[in-house]
Simulated scan of single mutants.
Amino acid sequence: MAVFAGVRAVLFDLDGTLIDSAPDLAAAADTMRASRGLPSLPLDRYRHLAGSGARGMLRAAFDLGPDHVDYEALKAEFLANYMACMTERTLPFAGVAELLSRLVDGGMRWGVVTNKARRFTEPLTQSIRLFETASTIVSGDSTPHAKPHPAPVQEAVRQIGLTAEQCIYVGDDERDIVAGHAAGVRTVAARYGYLGPSADVSSWGAHAVVTSPLQVLQLLDMP
C-alpha cells in the first residue's frame, strides 16, 4: 500500500466510516412500520442502505423513494424518530478509537465531513467522547452545498488551517470520493462500512482503498 507524502490531516465521513449508526437508523424506520401494523424487519434489511440516511431507510422500510407523494411526510416522521433514538445503539466501528488516538499521538489532525444535518451531527458527536479531539466537524448544512459538491470538504480544509494537498478524505460512498477529488484532496474508499459485496469501489477513482480503519495508518508517513 503506497504512502501519501506530506499529509498532515485526515478527514472522515461519519456514518459508515467512523460510526456504525445503522442500528439507530433502522430502529427509527422500524418504529414507523410497527405503528402501521407491519412486521419488524431484521437489521440486515436496513444496514446496506444506512449510508443514504432517511432516503435509504424509507426505501428499506416501505420500498418508496423521493418521488412518492407521501415521501416528505414520511421523511419528517422518520427524522423525528431518529432524533429521539440516535444515541442509543450507535458506536464507533472496531479500530476507530485506536486509529484516532494514534493520529493524535502522531501529531496528525483529523476531522469530519458528513452530509448529516447539524441538528443530528452535534448531539451525536457530543455523545461519543472520541470526537473531543476532532479539529473540525462539517455537517451537511454547514455550507450551501452537500457532498458530492466539494464545498464541505473545502470548508473542513479551511477550518483545519491546511492546504488540500496536506489532507486526505476517507469515506464509504462514491459521493465522498467525488467531493474529495473536486476539492483537491487525496481520497480513500472505506470498504468496511455499509458497502455490500456488489459495490464496485474500483470504479470510484479513489487514490486508495482500505478494508479496516487501522489500514488508514499504512497510508501515512508518521511515526
Results as ranks from 00 to 15, higher is better:
Gly171Pro: 10
Asn115Lys: 09
Ala146His: 11
Tyr194Ile: 03
His149Gly: 07
Ala84Lys: 06
Ala26Gln: 02
Pro144Val: 14
Val185Thr: 11
Pro123Lys: 08
Gly65Trp: 05
Glu88Thr: 05
Pro144Thr: 14
Val185His: 02
Thr187Pro: 02
Ala27Lys: 02
Tyr194Leu: 02
Arg36Asn: 00
Asp141Met: 12
Ile168Arg: 01
Leu18Tyr: 08
Thr211Ser: 15
Ala60Val: 10
Gly205Lys: 06
Ser35Leu: 10
Asp105Thr: 13
Asp30Trp: 04
Ala117Ser: 12
Phe12Glu: 04
Val113Asp: 06
Ala28Ile: 06
Leu41Val: 11
Ser198Asn: 11
Asp13Val: 06
Asp15Trp: 01
Gly65Asp: 13
Lys75Gln: 14
Trp204His: 09
Ser35Cys: 02
Asp221Leu: 03
Pro152Trp: 12
Gly140Leu: 14
Leu91Lys: 15
Asp173Gln: 14
Ala156Asp: 08
Asp105Lys: 15
Arg175His: 10
Ala206Phe: 04
Pro197Ile: 12
Arg158Asp: 11
Val178Lys: 13
Ala179Tyr: 09
Ser21Leu: 02
Ala29Arg: 03
Asp30Met: 05
Ala151Asn: 11
Leu74Pro: 00
Asp141Ile: 13
Ile177Arg: 08
Ala34Leu: 09
Glu72Trp: 05
Ile19Ser: 05
Phe4His: 06
Thr136Cys: 15
Pro150Cys: 08
Leu91Pro: 00
Phe78Gly: 05
Leu43Ile: 09
Pro197Gln: 13
Gly6His: 12
